[in-house]
Simulated assay, not measured.
Amino acid sequence: MTKASDRDDPLTTGLIHHAYRPPAGFGAVPPAVHKASTVIFATAAALRARDWKSKSGYTYGLHGTPTTFTLEARIAALEGGRHTVLAPSGLAAIALVNLALLKSGDELLLPANVYGPSKELARQELAHWGITHRLYDPMDAAALATMIGPQTRLVWIEAAGSVTMEFPDMAALVAACRARGVTSALDNTWGAGVAFAPFDCGIDISMQALTKYPSGGADVLMGAVTTLDEALHLRLSATHMRLGLGIGANDAEFVLRSLPTLALRYAAQDAAARRLAAWWQQRKEIAQLLHPAFVGSPGHAHWAATCRAAAGLFSVVFDARYTTAQVDAFVDALRLFKIGYSWAGPVSLVVPYDLALLRGPQAALGKGTLVRFSLGLESADDLIADCEQALRSLG
């Protein structure tokens, strides 16, 4: 009997509709990488019956492939949740939560030390849609409780705070939200599912920038939104679908490849950061060390009660006698630390910030220029030596 492939033009149709199918049962350590926009259905009835929301099958590449479903399941397990959706970046994941849960006339509450782009998203884009926002002091749960009003629908929490590293009493913040029926969302990029279990704290939504620790290579942009509640997940998934948020299969592959070493990298960078932070604590050039694991850092007691680890990230506030130009000269003199945003990659990073431009609970902070350090995977001794030589540039 003549096969269809024998009748087809071998240079066109035959190359597209080839009869060969590889045998099933191939097993390997890395998950397979599935790249697709179109998904093929066996019959018209199968097409009509398939439901993208259940993840029991596939409808279109944007709604998931075996590769992205695998990554979602692993992130959900890492976070201690049940359901995860992926977004093209951490900021896209934040935007997804906001757009899924807020409408015109609603109010959003953000911590005063919130990630800057998240604040700008609220100040610029959400405001265009009639969604208002206010900033609350993350170190004062009682004050948050009084701020939550009838229009408040969502409260974001950061642990630790962006740049200034305050660690809040999450249980008290969440309790204030729950008492008033308001959804709480945590930016868990710092904790990464390693430092603490977010849903044990009562959080409704945990967001991570997978760009950071889950990737670990400084080469992927991705975000994740994880929940326990199915109804909340379906609400997020519907908005996710309508916004057309998708990620590339190769980016999913990179994160899947890095996840098995996540705990090892987190521990190594945590240990290196504590060594360098302890060294800085003894230096007369700084007025304050901001690292949740150190006594004296804002919220240390809350960190100690909640966490089993700390990220490889901390900040120092230089003594006010040093000008911004002098601190910038110190930053420029560093050799191993590279100047750049983000963190959790193999290369150590540094960024100077002007405290006067940061909106945070300033009473807990000293006066002066702040420098944030993100520890990579270099030798801690070499990083200390790098800081020591750069300090000579202060004069």
Rank of each mutant, 00 (worst) to 15 (best):
A175R: 11
H17K: 10
V371L: 08
E79D: 12
V155A: 09
A301V: 09
A224R: 03
S184E: 05
E79V: 11
D332L: 14
G360Y: 08
T65G: 04
E378F: 03
Q124I: 15
R21Y: 05
G376D: 07
P22I: 10
R153N: 07
D169S: 12
L154R: 12
W129V: 04
D251C: 00
T146G: 03
T306Y: 01
A172W: 06
L135Y: 06
H63V: 01
C201N: 04
R274E: 15
T68L: 11
I94D: 11
D229P: 05
D169E: 14
A263D: 15
H291C: 15
A143G: 08
L256K: 07
T13C: 08
A36R: 14
L135H: 01
T324V: 11
A142R: 08
A171I: 02
G395F: 01
L365Y: 15
V351Y: 11
A176R: 05
L109M: 07
G244T: 02
S379Y: 01
P298C: 06
M139G: 09
P30Y: 06
G366H: 11
P111G: 01
V182E: 12
G360H: 11
Q151V: 05
L186S: 04
T211G: 02
H128D: 12
L394I: 10
R153K: 15
G244D: 02
I148F: 00
A192V: 01
A192Q: 07
G161V: 08
G202Y: 10
V347E: 13
G296C: 12
A49G: 09
T38V: 14
V327L: 07
S315G: 10
R257T: 13
E388V: 14
A160I: 07
W279L: 04
L355R: 08
V29E: 09
P111E: 13
M165P: 05
P198Y: 03
P260K: 06
A145C: 02
Q208A: 13
V220I: 13
G191S: 12
A195V: 07
I205C: 01
I286S: 06
A310M: 09
